[in-house]
């Protein structure tokens, strides 16, 4: 059984039919990437999974067998499906430390929270240096580290990452993708990664889906896609 199983996902924005029946699944321990051009519906897909968008009744999104479409976003986090939104969305008026504490909002076991905090600060030493600083004063890369670190504080089983490379210098993109791989390998976190940077995404992922105007048009092994002429022409720009 897939840890995240999406069947027949539709999303409407008023009269616009943004997602037209998507099926995708993510197995435990996998990195799966969803690539596609602007406006294809990648962000919409993640927002529907994490409960920020409503879906019609015949849509099913299940995590480890339990249905997520019927519960609120804040309850979905508590189930271990954690979303790092597009544009990072850190709380800019709070300190770095407070942002990380917000990540652990639903958790009860303070010892485990403390262990996770130590882990996050070791993974991103820059955050350790800037713990007392307001998050709004961080650079883009540091904010992305904070957004991922904050999500790790929620003790995720499945991490939904939306465009972690957006607006970052290439060297920082490398750092961020390295830490994503590390989270997957050493902590066993399942990852669903949405990216415009298809090159990077396909290199770290096990499997990939291609989304075009609300429909999945292609799916399969990520490494195979790297050499697929259609993918190369449309998304790799080589």
């Amino acid at each position: 059984m897939a840890t995240l199983d999406i069947k027949n996902l539709h999303v409407y924005y008023g009269h616009i039919h943004a997602l037209k029946g998507i099926d995708l699944h993510v197995e435990e321990g996998e990195i799966v990437t969803l690539i596609g051009s602007n406006g294809a519906g990648k962000t919409t897909t993640l927002r529907a999974i994490s409960g920020l968008l409503r879906t019609p009744e015949d849509t099913s999104i299940s995590h480890d067998g339990s249905e997520l479409t019927q519960i609120r976003a804040d309850q979905i986090v508590a189930r271990g499906v954690v979303h790092v939104p597009e544009g990072r969305r850190v709380f800019s008026r709070m300190s770095v430390q407070e942002n990380l504490t917000m990540g652990a909002y639903t958790r009860k076991n303070q010892q485990m929270v403390k262990d996770d905090l130590d882990y996050v600060l070791k993974l991103f030493p820059r955050l350790q240096e800037r713990r007392a600083q307001k998050a709004g004063t961080l650079s883009g890369g540091e904010q992305q580290m904070l957004a991922i670190g904050r999500a790790l504080m929620s003790s995720p089983k499945v991490l939904l990452l939306d465009e972690p490379s957006m607006g970052l210098a290439p060297v920082l993109v490398e750092t961020i993708f390295d830490s994503i791989e590390q989270l997957n390998r050493t902590r066993g976190i399942t990852i669903l990664l949405v990216e415009q940077n298809a090159q990077m995404a396909l290199q770290v992922a096990n499997r990939a889906y291609v989304l075009e105007t609300g429909r999945i048009t292609m799916s399969g092994d990520a490494k195979a896609m790297l050499s697929d002429p259609k993918v190369i022409a449309a998304y790799l720009g080589l």
Binding site: S50, G51, L52, R72, A73, D74, Q75, V77, A78, V82, H83, P85, R89, V90, F91, S92, R93, M94, E98, T101, M102, G103, Y105, T106, R150, S154
Partner: peptide, 17 residues
């Protein structure tokens, strides 16, 4: 903290639980 997070960004606050 919950109040301040909601004041700043409702979606992000919901994503924290």
């Amino acid at each position: 903290r919950a109040i301040r997070s909601v004041a700043e960004d409702k979606d992000a606050a919901a994503l924290m639980g």
